[in-house]
Amino acid sequence: MKILLALLEVFKNPAFYGSVLAVTPPLLFAALGCSVAQKADMTNMGMEGIMLISSFCGTLAAGYIGGPNPWLGLLVGVIVGALLGYLVAFFNLKMKVDIILVGIAMNLLGGGATAFFLPLVTPNHDRTSTNSIQSGILPLIKLPFLEKFPTLNAILNNQNVLTWISYIMIFVMAFLLYKTKLGLRIRAVGENSNAAESVGISSSKVKTIALVLSGILGGLGGTFMSAAYLSYFSNGITAGRGFIGLAACSMGEANPIPTALTSILFGFFYALSNYARTTGISDNIMKMWPYIATLIGVVIYSINKTNKEKKRRAQLSEK
């Protein structure tokens, strides 16, 4: 009972919802990135590695070129992300390496290369983080008119600019996939690349574009970690967020809106585990929740799907 009251107290606190919005973006970028690749039938397993490397490069650029210049860091992070996305496409489409293997290689490279180069490029030869170079943080969006409404103010005010971009990106990706020619082609190639080829669409070109887009989103997610979440790069800074994004993508069937909602659900439980520490619930149980939620979600989803399938078959057999 005491625990329930304490939980209620957390849910009544608007700052908690602000925290949900603030911790979700890296998951969201990763999930959207995976979904656009998935739509073209390319499983971007290497999301974690792409995020790590672009976070690392972005931080260095922000710190070394023109003093603390996080915007430049963002640009470099995105460019590096795009290049890595292209690299995945190159190895899979041109060199014919299995896409999952390329992804695993990318993740290993991400963890290893960043740890290797970190002491070589930082002035103090830091082994764990770039604390000794100042790479700055992207600006917070201040909305003075919200100050009249304390609840909304606590939720929406002073969020990082990249946080806003991440939520805008949901609609951008939905528009891109469902309302543009490119989106149609991506989906067509993903559904049946032979059919798409037969009407003159180059499937490898479209898949490459999808992976580059995926890399750009991964770059945004990586930069978020080191220029918004923290203000420096540290080894393994993404801490599995790329993989959680991949999970959110498959739960949302790679459709932007459901994928985004799943990411926000993960973010919700993540923030809850931070806020619920002071309620007396065991930390270990709180840490489990996002994964339990995933399991429950997947079960409900597959029950629904099998039911639909059964109905459809029943209808077909009646005819």
Partner: peptide, 22 residues
Amino acid sequence: SWMNSFSDATAGKDTAQGLYAA
């Protein structure tokens, strides 16, 4: 409170956020 990590700085940041907020 436990951060459940010795290496993940984001876990430390988030844990501290919850504590200061409380």
